[in-house]
Every structure is written in C-alpha cells, then in structure tokens.
Amino acid sequence: MDLLSTLQVLYRRLTAEMRSKYDRRVPLGDLLTDRWEIARSYAFGAGSSCYDSVLILGDVRVGENTWIGPNCILDGSGGPLIIGDWCSISAGVHIYTHDTVRRSTSLGVDPIDKAPVSIGSGVYIGPNSVVAKGVTIGDKAVIGAMSLVNRDIPGGTRAWGTPARAQP
C-alpha cells in the first residue's frame, strides 16, 4: 500500500471515530491535533482550547477555560491582544490589533495603525464577528453574531450590529 492510500485509510478511520464519538465532522488538522495541546503550546491559560484552523499572530494572551472556535484570526501583531477567562470566541471571529487603512490610502506614506485589544472575562463573541484595533470589551459582555465591534463595549452589555451598539 502506498503512502497516499495509507493516509486515506487513516483519514476515513479518524473521521468515522469522530462521528461515532461526537457526531461531527472536522478538518484533517483537527482530527490529528488536540485543541487543548494547541492552546498550551501558545501558553494560553489552563483548560483553554484552540482549533488547528485558528490563525494566531503576534502577542496573543488567553486566560483560563476559554474556547477559541474554528477559523478564527487572533492578530496581536499590532500590540497585545488579551482575552480573559471563561470566554467563548465563536467560529470565524476576527480580532485585530492593527489596520492598514491610512498606510494604503496614503500610498505607503503613513504608518500602519496599531492599538491593543482587551477582552474581559466571561465574554461571548458570536460567529463571524470582527473586533477592530484599540477596542476594550468588558467582563460578561455579549457580542451578537456578524457584528463589527469598532468601539469599546462596557461590561455586562449586549451589543450587536454593524457597527455594534448596546441593546436594551
């Protein structure tokens, strides 16, 4: 049996085992890796997990028992990106500590804009949301799906939309 055939057999077996145990199908990288080990390799807090498909850049710090969903971007290349304990960062969330708007529109004359991002403990960020540079999200805030968070959100606030706004 050649290497490709062996890998295909292994893939089918791993996929069947995942379906049997958890009733889900995940990409190959997630079949071969342990989400908690990935989080430990980035020195994230105890009990935190991070899918293989997450892109992590720069200075990213994550507290304990935080779940980072698949296909997220955690970009701390513009300053520290700090996420607290017991957070849920849903699938497809992008969090940035920089942007290149002024650099691009000035044809490279202006620098890349950078600012840290801080996300408190007990925060839920819904799927496919974007958190812009310089934003602080307070403890126990809830950000609705597909929101653009481009300003600070106080603790305990429920916010959603583009741009995200506090909801009654």
Rank of each mutant, 00 (worst) to 15 (best):
I38N: 13
G78W: 00
D152P: 13
S129V: 09
P168H: 07
D23F: 03
P168S: 14
T97M: 07
I38F: 01
I82M: 12
V26W: 02
F44H: 01
V60I: 07
G63V: 06
R35C: 00
L57S: 08
T105P: 00
A91E: 11
V101E: 13
H94P: 01
H98R: 12
I82E: 13
G45W: 00
A91Q: 14
S129M: 05
L107W: 08
R25L: 11
D30H: 07
G76Y: 07
G155S: 09
T6Y: 13
R13L: 15
W36T: 01
I89A: 00
R12S: 11
G126N: 05
I56E: 00
Y11N: 15
E64R: 14
Y51K: 04
S88E: 10
P168E: 13
R24E: 10
K140M: 06
T6W: 09
S20Q: 14
L31R: 01
R19C: 10
M18A: 15
V109M: 12
D23R: 15
I56K: 01
S5V: 02
M1S: 13
V62S: 00
E64Y: 04
S53G: 06
V117N: 08
I68F: 10
T15P: 12
I143T: 04
V142D: 09
G29L: 03
S88Q: 06
K114E: 11
S129D: 08
T162N: 15
V117H: 09
P163H: 05
Q167V: 14
S147F: 14
A132E: 13
D152E: 10
Y96C: 03
D152Y: 04
M18Y: 06
L148E: 10
D139L: 02
G138V: 00
R102K: 11
V131G: 05
G161E: 06
M1R: 13
L107V: 04
D59C: 09
V109G: 04
G134I: 03
A115Q: 09
G29A: 09
D2G: 13
S106T: 15
Y11H: 15
I137T: 08
L32E: 07
I143D: 01
G144W: 05
G58P: 08
R35M: 12
S129N: 09
S121E: 04
V142S: 13
R158K: 11
Y51C: 11
D85I: 07
G144D: 08
G120V: 01
C72M: 08
I143E: 03
I68C: 02
T33D: 03
A46W: 02
P27R: 10
K133E: 05
A115F: 01
R13I: 14
T100K: 03
R103W: 13
G63Y: 05
